[in-house]
Write a protein that binds this DNA or RNA. Structure first.
Lengths: 213, 213
DNA sequence: AGTTAATTTAAACACCCGTTTAAATTAATC
DNA sequence: GATTAATTTAAACGGGTGTTTAAATTAACT
């Protein structure tokens, strides 16, 4: 059934790397197939279209991350509602870093793809994610809300999207920021170090009391 | 000298709107010139290339925003170092909203362009901004650092980029988020309302004590 | 082994892109 | 008003894009 390594897999592996680095529209099928060492037409044969390839690339990560994240959230001291926001966000570190075992640089690739998906493709990838992984997202939102009960649901909606923006933009610029940090402050952070830096920032922002005046 | 409205201005006006909505690479010169009702070749005649047009679009906003922001930061109670982080971030509201008077929707267009500039064009727009507006940026960083002296410079570097990501990603998705918020919570926020929502989040994140363990 | 199905391949298709050219037009200057 | 300069215009250039086609090849099944 499979010639050498599965053609489908070779395409996905090459595509996710290029998509994360350069964005979807800046990455041509010809570049993907040449890096993957497969024929140009095989993308349309196996995936139908470029748009569906993009979805498949994202789904391959989400199908690993989402269930794993839900398990960690539910496991929090056997009672997620008593966990702090820092603990809840930190519970996502393990599922995120496990993506590095799936593929080299998997964590940062996943987060960059997520950001590209939300910004580039005007809305239809956001729709794909929120509908296909609704239960997992609800689990997460419920846990966060329970641990910050002073934040009304509408305000929490906005703050969680602020949080998504924070992490996703950070990871999209991670390489550039790391270079500057190394040059200016002698710092050398890997993906995990950056995630551990950003969690307190996000947790503090989500929990800050709403201004009433 | 000018036929009707200045051709150069017509191009910039059409371009900034399309760039903000769809991104740089997704916006063709043919689409820009047709919306602007000018000839295709006039872009290259007046700006040289598409890349230089992108820079000109961004510069037109930065040249208004940056000096205005610096003035507001320096004016903070005549002593910026005694202002709170909330006050410092809030000082940027006026310069941001004044962009709405420059052009309709100017505030959100500017913030979306900023985000596109940082994410899409791999690094060379980030370079353009940090070198051409270095003094203004330094003024801002200095004020923020003075009002959160417990945050080491390297940590502050990261947190300010978290902050940039938060605001820029939020504004890039503002329309979509507003639709959801309206449908799910009956909320209707304009650009200013969203900015006022995000400021406490960012201020809390920037100031949160660094974990020592 | 022979037949059918799945996959791979090279080539072409139709289209859109940024840029350039040279002629036509408009504006400015003497 | 004639001459020069600035701008606008239509057309073409060369190249890249996603997708489709039909033939060649490989794998699977009876």
């Amino acid at each position: 059934m499979a010639s050498r390594t599965d053609t489908k897999t070779r395409i996905l592996d090459a595509a996710e790397k290029l998509f994360a680095e350069r964005g979807f529209s800046e990455t041509s099928l010809r570049l993907i197939t040449s890096k993957a060492e497969v024929n140009l037409a095989s993308v349309n044969y196996h995936f139908g279209s470029k748009k569906e390839l993009i979805r498949a690339v994202l789904a391959r990560y989400l199908d690993v991350f989402m269930p794993s994240a839900s398990i960690e959230i539910n496991r929090l001291h056997l009672a997620p509602e008593h966990a702090s926001l820092n603990e809840i966000f930190s519970a996502l570190i393990k599922p995120l870093l496990e993506l590095n075992k799936v593929r080299n640089g998997g964590t940062i690739i996943f987060l960059q793809l997520l950001g590209r998906g939300y910004i580039e493709s005007q809305g239809h990838l956001r729709w794909f994610i929120t509908t296909h992984y609704a239960e997992h997202l609800a689990t997460f939102v419920k846990a966060v809300s329970a641990s910050a009960p002073h934040i009304p649901p509408a305000e929490m909606f906005w703050r969680l999207h602020f949080t998504l923006g924070t992490i996703v933009f950070t990871m999209a610029s991670a390489d550039a920021l790391n270079e500057i940090a190394a040059a200016d402050y002698g710092e050398h952070n890997n993906t995990e170090a950056i995630i551990r830096k950003v969690i307190p920032y996000m947790a503090a922002g989500v929990a800050v009391p709403v201004l009433t005046n």
